[in-house]
Amino acid sequence: MTCREIEQLLKREGGEDRYSTDHGELASHLKSCRRCGEAMRAARLSSVLLGALRNEITPGPHFYPRLHARLADTEIGQMDAILQAWGLAKQLIPALAVGVVLLAVITLSTGGSRPSPPVQAEGETDLHAFSLEEVNLPGAIGRPSRDQMLAFVLAHGTRCDVRGAPCEDESPR
């Protein structure tokens, strides 16, 4: 047997146990090669020592009663956490309610969304800062572009809002 073969043997799981050292070729190699002898002894020692780690333990008489007590504590702890969260929420509810009421009062007192006041422009022309609902451009989907808004304002300004001049629609025919 060669050193390489022994190395291969030891690489295989449980290889050290598969061959008895009485096995002629193996025994003679192990006697003559110190390195392989050492490796084989280490592998066997390792397997024996690991076997000693197997430890059959069964739960003692107090194990399950203690576990029940801990489970009960855990459940109480979970309930406590829920109640604590609920308590915190209960404390926050009045503050949140006051906030909502205040917001409603402020909104109502400012009159909601009234049309914006006219702006004095050059050439004594009143230009309205139109809201989007007022613009309501035909064929425009979504928010109109700045150019569309400007075109709309200019069109309305020249037609209706020039001071003193009657609106096109209102002019006597």
């Binding site: 780690l53 430890n55 059959e56 333990i57 069964t58 739960p59 399950y64 576990l67």
Partner: peptide
């Protein structure tokens, strides 16, 4: 608990190593 009693030996043996 009944469920644990079925498996406790294995748990104890693994921890015991």
């Amino acid at each position: 608990e009944t469920l644990l009693r079925i498996h406790d030996r294995h748990v104890f043996t693994v921890i015991g190593s």
